[in-house]
Design a protein around this nucleic acid. Structure first.
Lengths: 255, 255
DNA sequence: CGATGGATTGAACTGGTTCAAGTGGAGTGG
DNA sequence: CCACTCCACTTGAACCAGTTCAATCCATCG
């Protein structure tokens, strides 16, 4: 994983159907998944997909680079091919709240008015696919199924943010971290189709802290706490094994 | 304002066009408003409105009664004629997070899948108008403008919840209360069209606390703090005058 | 008039923060 | 190949914003 900032590269897609072919790690089979990665392509047939692929641009962003910024004109929507992205909002003095982490198959920029209401940054190196937003929005009339899918994605995302509000407002540090680990597990099950208890954690402690409304130190302490309670194993900072998922789930729900 | 729970009353609407005529305190003129009360009726012409009015049921709920509960089948969508409603989620042990307050003109139940993901309760006596959800959702195809409007409302609501996540995760008690007062002010400006600094606060301290992720005591102390700082006047617990809105806005934004 | 319940205030406490120091792994350069 | 730097992470100790617990106030209502 490269960590040095580099100029981003941009190119026309070589495989026109990549949106359809590669970008749907999750689909109808994964209805249970809680987050944003209901794919758009289910809503379109092959001809329609061609049209949308043709207006797309493939972009590679190295880790740590900004993809789009809060208050910038929302000209594009983005689909993540692979890698991890964070969405965040800031206060004037630098305090940051991460509103969500996005993974392969996820979209962002869809539910904006005319400006992005958050900053999107690459956590790992990412491959993303960019579409002119006006063209997508404009084609809702022609392809109602597309609009329905976008509505469905927004709806699902709204429900997830309600859960996150409960977490931010009312859960303890330990409960927050347990909830987070379970969300990550569910996500990686969806993406990798595996039913393992081993989780890769692509983001750093500071990102987790800003997502859960805590500090880096508290995150670190809670990780060691869970380890001492024999609920997790910590291979390194970015790989965790949930040795007792049931107990973690119980804590996450406040029991 | 009645406070005793009473059996709710239910009746067919006498004025078929009440949805159109009375329930749009806000409309295009109020685009700047941040929350859920973009009206649906703008999306429909008179004939269409008649059809929707005919499938609606008027309901009166006294204060403190439950309108719909988390995990209950989401059979209806609701439009608030007047009064104030709270949406909330709970943890097993009773900790509560209020995800939003709704006022005249607001809708809820739209962005659910098949179960309500929150409990809706009347804070004051409310008059609400109930529509079978399936019929509304089903008519998106026939009336695309309706679907677009619903999407727009959901989108707007999502942006508001992102702001609330920043508040819950990163703001101090004082900043939280100032942000809340300003939101209430904007809301009452929209509803009453007045540019006053006097705000009626329909909810009690405990509701405010559960909305801001704090305790009743902290809310109370912060109210007196703001009063001592000469930023607000407190006529009684439910009526506040913002004597220095600029200073309050500065605090709310973290300055 | 006493009872009830929301709101306020006070005082002690604590979960999480802040500040500061230490650790370890990856990259760099000699 | 080793020494050095850097940076993310961890750990410790003091601190404090907000909580908890308890008492009081005060408006409303029967």
């Amino acid at each position: 994983m490269s960590t040095l900032p580099q100029p981003f590269s941009e190119s026309k897609p070589e495989t026109q159907l990549r949106l359809a072919a590669n970008n749907c790690p999750t689909n109808a089979a994964c209805e249970g998944c809680s987050s944003r990665h209901l794919s758009l392509c289910n809503a379109l047939d092959t001809d329609e997909l061609h049209r949308f692929s043709e207006i797309s641009t493939d972009i590679h962003k190295p880790a740590k680079q900004i993809i789009c910024s809060e208050d910038e004109a929302a000209d594009y929507i983005y689909n993540i091919r692979n890698g991890t992205v964070r969405l965040s909002k800031m206060l004037a003095d630098g305090r940051r709240q991460i509103t969500g982490f996005l993974f392969a198959g996820d979209f962002f920029g869809l539910s904006c008015k005319d400006k992005y209401s958050y900053t999107a940054e690459a956590i790992t190196d990412v491959d993303i696919c960019r579409f002119p937003r006006a063209k997508i929005i404009g084609s809702f009339k022609e392809f109602p199924a597309l609009g329905e899918r976008v509505f469905e994605m927004t709806r699902t995302e709204l429900e997830a943010t309600h859960d996150q509000m409960l977490l931010l407002g009312r859960k303890t540090a330990k409960e927050k971290l347990c909830s987070f680990l379970l969300t990550l597990q569910e996500k990686s099950r969806c993406l990798e189709g595996q039913d393992k208890n081993e989780i890769k954690i692509p983001m750093n402690r500071s990102d987790i802290a800003d997502f859960l409304g805590l500090t880096v130190e508290t995150i670190s302490r809670q990780f060691t706490n869970l380890h001492k309670m024999n609920l997790i194993e910590l291979d390194d900072a970015h790989k965790v094994v949930l040795t007792n998922p049931e107990a973690i789930a119980a804590i996450a729900e406040g029991n």
